[in-house]
């Protein structure tokens, strides 16, 4: 167990999930109840979804769907794997999955940072709108589909159709990319991008863990923004 001395401990083998989520929704972070520990999550869905306070929440085990969904301000650390849609629609804060994440990690998230130490499955960062997602392992197919803004940084490989129908999200992959989706192209990794990567890795607590010049950058070719008859085959 890590050296973490919680103000409040919720054991979900003893208490209902709704009781935990209700208490988290009432928390302001202005009292002494800032450090929370959750035991026995046992794959429950929507755990710590909708938190809007500067709390630190340590979850000791695997979680189900939509954990930390809609998160604002909170740091949510999952000591295990996360099910579908972890940190979906996050607005701000920091979500850290120490294991693997299932599909649609960080889907539609507007802000904050999602760090995944293992792999993420298909559709990682689908429709991302400003979140930073860092995956130390690899990501599955159709990741960053229709990504609008934010950064997806992958230490490993990417599956098929990376960045299909991409808007302005920036994608950085260090390993191989199985295939690029429609309108996604490789772009030059310039100094400004290396700085961006260094800054993001520092913010994720991963400074110096990797040579940022090893990444390749992918982005939108901007051919599909508006309907154009010449591009009809690509839609």
């Amino acid at each position: 167990m890590n050296a973490f001395s919680p103000d409040i401990t919720f054991d979900l083998a003893q208490s209902e999930l709704r009781e935990l989520n209700g208490a988290l929704h009432k928390a302001t972070g202005e009292t002494n109840a800032k450090l929370w520990r959750v035991l026995n999550p046992n794959g429950r869905h929507a755990l710590a979804a909708g938190v809007d306070a500067p709390l630190t929440i340590q979850v000791e085990g695997h979680v189900g769907y939509y954990c930390a969904g809609m998160n604002q301000q909170a740091s949510i650390i999952i000591h295990g794997n996360a099910g579908v849609g972890v940190a979906e629609n996050m607005m701000s804060g920091f979500v850290h999955v120490l294991g693997d994440a299932s599909q649609a990690a960080g889907a539609t998230a507007h802000g904050g940072m999602l760090r995944i130490d293992g792999n993420a499955s298909a559709r990682c960062g689908i429709s991302m709108k400003g979140v930073d997602i860092i995956v130390k392992g690899s990501i599955g197919h159709m990741s960053a589909f229709m990504g609008q803004s934010g950064n997806l940084i992958v230490f490993g490989d990417a599956g098929e159709a990376l960045g299909d129908s991409l808007y302005e999200a920036k994608l950085f992959v260090r390993g191989s990319v199985k295939s690029l989706g429609a309108d996604c192209i490789e772009k030059e990794l310039r100094d400004e991008h290396k700085k961006l990567l260094s800054d993001k890795l520092a913010a994720a607590g991963l400074s110096g863990s990797i040579d940022v010049s090893e990444f390749k950058r992918y982005g939108s070719a901007r051919r599909l923004y508006n309907f154009h008859i010449d591009n009809v085959d690509a839609y």
Binding site: N42, G43, R44, H45
Partner: peptide
Amino acid sequence: VAFASEYRALV
């Protein structure tokens, strides 16, 4: 070796 639609079923 166990399989399930969701992790909950394995706990």
